[in-house]
Computed example of a mutant assay.
Amino acid sequence: MDVLVPFAAALVSFRLAAELVRKHRLRRAPELLAWAASLGSFAAASAALAWGAAAGWDDRAFRAYYLFGGLLTAALLGAGSLLRAGVRAAGPVVVFYAGLAVGVALAVPIDPAVTGGSIPDAASHLELVPARILALVGNIAGTVAAVGVALTGLRRRPLGNSLIIGGVAVAAAGSALAGLGQGGGSFFTAIAAVLLYAGFVSRR
């Protein structure tokens, strides 16, 4: 289960991300591209969980998981919501942030080295600055942006925005219940990806 569920979550998230890319090609809406990148990050983080569960955790799997799950997913989600609300500055800001996140995830020292079969605790392997503080900023800003835009648009698009809020809540619950292991956390990720996708494409 610890391998199959994250692998299935990765496939579901990747399929939904690809569908958003297809819709972006038709509509050229920048928020669709940002949301596709967010769901793609869901997929990559789930794949890293499957990797860690199948082969054992090491620094490579941890860097991939931290980059996509810890640094990028929420920030890209929030950027998509801001772009949907007409905040065009969110585009270049999130591109800069994503580049910084990739650099940090690849270059930051990991001490001690990651080993074992359970999801690593970032606080045990990464210094607060820059990796953990960057993840904190990205997650808070992205979540506040996504939920804030959804709340302000509830009267205009009640179904879509309620689904987005629900997706954010389910993703947060999965993170909070990390003790469930790779399989349990990925189950929440898959549900969150489906809810978010449904919210993104809903016109009601």
Rank of each mutant, 00 (worst) to 15 (best):
F14L: 14
R15D: 02
R15E: 08
L16H: 05
L16N: 04
L16W: 09
A17K: 07
A17M: 12
A17S: 10
A18G: 03
A18V: 10
A18D: 04
A18K: 08
E19I: 08
E19Q: 05
E19P: 00
E19F: 06
E19H: 07
E19C: 03
L20T: 03
L20I: 03
L20W: 07
L20M: 09
V21P: 03
R22I: 04
R22N: 01
R22L: 11
R22Y: 07
R22P: 03
R22M: 07
K23C: 06
K23M: 12
K23Q: 06
K23T: 10
H24A: 09
R25C: 09
R25D: 06
L26W: 09
R27L: 15
R28Y: 13
R28C: 05
A29Y: 14
A29M: 08
P30Y: 12
P30A: 10
P30R: 09
E31L: 11
E31F: 13
L32A: 11
L33S: 12
L33Q: 09
L33T: 11
L33G: 08
L33H: 04
L33F: 12
A34I: 15
A34E: 10
A34D: 09
W35F: 14
W35L: 09
W35K: 02
W35R: 05
W35M: 06
A36T: 05
A36R: 09
A37P: 07
A37T: 14
A37Y: 14
A37C: 14
A37Q: 10
A37R: 13
A37M: 15
S38L: 14
L39I: 13
G40Y: 15
G40M: 13
G40N: 12
S41H: 12
A43Q: 13
A43R: 08
A44K: 04
A45E: 08
A45V: 13
A45P: 04
S46N: 13
S46P: 03
S46V: 03
S46T: 05
A48T: 07
A48E: 02
A48C: 05
L49D: 03
L49E: 09
A50S: 06
A50Y: 06
A50I: 10
G52K: 00
G52Q: 00
G52M: 03
G52H: 02
A53Q: 03
A53N: 01
A54M: 09
A54I: 01
A55F: 12
A55M: 04
A55V: 00
A55S: 04
G56W: 02
G56Y: 02
G56E: 03
G56I: 06
W57N: 00
W57E: 02
W57P: 01
D58W: 02
